[in-house]
């Protein structure tokens, strides 16, 4: 009833977890039956180990939070050697979120992950700054987005999902550019650039001054962008941004997403993904829906 497809991937249900909010899945195994998830998108992985940004890295904001973790991760080699063997037997789609500061770095990570049998897809995080192009985000210009996707496409042979940043004037243009460059799917949205100031101490809350906004406050923007993109591309769209309940997930599905990812909500309730799966089942039963795909994109 809840089964859905993203390119070559079959998902038991449309509920996946968002990169950077669910660790490698292991952190949640006491709370969640990981085999009941449609997929797990693990932490952003880069060519080399990264220390990430200085503390403080987070601030709570109305119905959301800002983060400035800065892609702290063990690097692709340690991921392949130490992390992959621990998680490869999980009975769900394990997707690696791939990040980099140059096209070469993206390609290196993607080709190393390509060799791992039990990883059926990568999610290319193109929200990162391109160090060689003055720090301009890969995902903010159609030509740059197409270029990085095109190069990764040459070395990566499985399902290639490209994760879009909402910090652009026209997200549709970027989605079309990465579709043309060979993406099999797009996921959106990554965090919105934001900022908050501690007026008592007269300084920003984050060590980096600005950071990424996530949580319920971003949901209407995310639903709008998913709806726009779903109407403009042929490849499947994965929706995320502020999902806490099954009703939130249904908004994204109706707006055209074939699957969803749950992020910040995992911090509020580590078992939230199970409640969303149960809630989708309940919704289908209540509305006499035999196949969840029947409501995808009805708006």
């Amino acid at each position: 009833m809840l089964e859905t497809k993203i390119h070559n991937l079959t998902l038991k249900n449309p509920v996946m977890t968002a990169s950077g909010t669910f660790g490698y899945g292991e952190e949640f195994s006491d709370f969640v039956d990981l085999s009941r998830l449609g997929g797990i998108v693990v932490k952003g992985t880069t060519g080399e180990r990264r220390q990430g940004n200085a503390y403080p890295r987070m601030a709570e904001t109305p119905a959301g939070m800002l983060n400035a973790v800065g892609l702290q991760n063990v690097g692709v080699e340690t991921f392949c050697q130490d992390v992959y063997p621990r998680i490869k037997e999980l009975d769900t789609n394990i997707i690696v979120n791939v990040s980099g500061s140059s096209i070469e770095e993206y390609s290196k990570v993607a080709s190393m992950i390509d060799a791992l049998d039990r990883i059926p897809a990568i999610e290319l995080n193109i929200s990162c700054p391109n160090v060689k192009k003055g720090g301009m985000g890969f995902g903010t210009r159609p030509e740059m987005a197409a270029q990085v996707v095109g190069e990764v496409r040459k070395v990566y042979h499985k399902t290639l999902i490209v994760k879009l940043t909402p910090n652009v004037t026209n997200v549709v243009e970027i989605a079309q550019a990465v579709e043309d460059a060979g993406a099999d799917s797009v996921s959106l949205i990554n965090t919105l650039l934001g900022m908050a100031i501690d007026v008592e101490r007269q300084r920003p809350y984050l060590s980096t001054i600005t950071g990424g906004l996530s949580g319920p406050c971003v949901k209407p923007i995310a639903v709008r962008m998913v709806w726009q993109v779903a109407h403009a591309v042929k490849i499947p769209v994965i929706g995320l941004g502020g999902i806490v309940t099954a009703a939130d997930a249904l908004e994204f599905l109706m707006a055209g997403a074939k699957a969803v990812e749950v992020g910040t909500a995992n911090f509020l309730d580590p078992a939230v993904t199970m409640k969303i799966v149960d809630g989708l089942e309940d919704y289908c039963n209540r509305h006499g829906i035999k196949d969840i795909n029947d409501i995808i994109g009805i708006i």
Binding site: G20, T21, E27, M58, F267
Partner: peptide, 11 residues
């Protein structure tokens, strides 16, 4: 944020 080692906010 998470308290269980998933978000890397508390380093």
């Amino acid at each position: 944020a998470c308290g269980i080692g998933a978000c890397l906010c508390c380093v």
